[in-house]
Amino acid sequence: MVIPVWTVYILRCADGSLYTGVARDMEKRLRQHNGEVVGGARYTRGRRPVALLWSESAADRSSAQRREAAIKRLPRPQKLALVAG
């Protein structure tokens, strides 16, 4: 049995804004955000193309969503510092 791996990620949109989300299949989710596959967030639809800046694995959905919420609360400079490493 394969245990699904959750990923927390930050995208840079074409307008320079940042988008944070979670996914189990990061490649598919990125294709959704870029309009190659049906789905994706309403926020990114008008801000394509998007590029993956940063991602981090999480043990389960709950921990991924907690990490996502924590990142969303960060000011932009701190998000950029996280991306920079």
Rank of each mutant, 00 (worst) to 15 (best):
V38T: 09
L53W: 01
L82G: 08
L30K: 02
T7W: 02
G85C: 03
R73I: 03
R24S: 10
D60F: 00
L80R: 10
L11K: 04
L80S: 05
E68W: 00
G21A: 10
M1E: 13
A70W: 04
L74H: 01
K79R: 15
I71T: 04
E56M: 11
A23Y: 03
T7L: 04
S17H: 08
M26F: 03
L30M: 13
H33S: 04
E27I: 09
G16A: 11
A41K: 06
V38M: 08
G46R: 14
R29W: 02
A58T: 05
L53A: 11
R45P: 02
W54K: 07
R73V: 03
R61S: 12
L74D: 06
K79Q: 15
L82F: 01
A59S: 13
P75H: 09
R61V: 06
S57R: 13
A23D: 09
Y43N: 07
G46D: 14
S62I: 13
A81C: 06
A69V: 09
D15C: 15
W54R: 07
R45V: 06
L82W: 00
D15V: 14
R73P: 02
I3Q: 10
L53M: 15
T20M: 09
D25M: 03
E56R: 11
K79Y: 01
W6K: 03
T7R: 07
E56A: 13
G21L: 06
R42A: 12
S55W: 00
D25W: 03
A58G: 08
G46S: 13
R67M: 12
V5Y: 00
N34R: 08
E36A: 11
R73T: 09
Y43T: 11
N34Y: 02
A84R: 14
V22R: 00
P77Q: 10
R48F: 04
V50P: 02
A51F: 06
A84K: 10
V5P: 00
A64D: 03
A84S: 14
T44F: 04
S57A: 13
W54D: 10
C13T: 15
E36V: 07
R66G: 10
C13S: 12
E68F: 01
L53H: 01
A70V: 08
G46I: 05
P75C: 09
R45D: 12
R67K: 14
R48A: 09
R12D: 06
C13K: 07
Y9S: 07
P49I: 06
S55I: 02
G40P: 02
E68G: 02
I71M: 07
N34F: 00
G39F: 00
Q32V: 09
Y19E: 08
G40I: 02
P75V: 09
V2P: 04
